[in-house]
Amino acid sequence: MRKSLFMMITVGVTLASAADLRSAIEVPDASAIIAKDLLGPAKKFTMPKGCISDDKEAIARGSFIFHNLNGKKAKENPPKGLSRKGADGKEKQYGNCVACHNIEGAKGGGNVGPDLTNYNEFFMKTGVRDNKFVYQKIADPRIDNPDTHMTVNLTTGLFTEREICDITSYIVSIKK
């Protein structure tokens, strides 16, 4: 059965020339795909007015973005103001920050990045960090650390300023 199929697609038994051989193999272009996909240079951002808030809904959105990968994988429905799909109709990407960071309530939190548990207590109250630092870190961590292994979230256009504010608000908030 398999053999007969082979006979049908057999194009001849003569040996192919070098040029034929080369044209017989797949060598698709990838350079254009990569060129379109490149990360821009590190960018400094200014925190918009009213960025950090203790509004429950903003913090809930920030938390949801922190703990989930994307609209398809999220088990629970996103909170008010966030949807499973982006403006372009494609599934919305979230932060998946938990892949690298532990934090209150993390499920399967990673340790590629520092533990963000008790962030307010350890980093904010002590004055080691401020809102501006956290906002910039999430927007583009390369400003603080050019060799960072962390994701770039605003320069890439993955999130809006508002969303970076929501995530920042979540991290600096006092959690129960």
């Binding site: 082979f6 001849g12 192919a16 017989a24 193999i25």
Partner: peptide, 18 residues
């Protein structure tokens, strides 16, 4: 994979997709 594609062509077969 590409080597096998070339081999298949050399034997007169339409190469399988990678």
């Amino acid at each position: 994979g590409q080597t096998l594609q070339a081999l298949m062509a050399d034997n007169g077969h339409k190469p399988l997709a990678l």
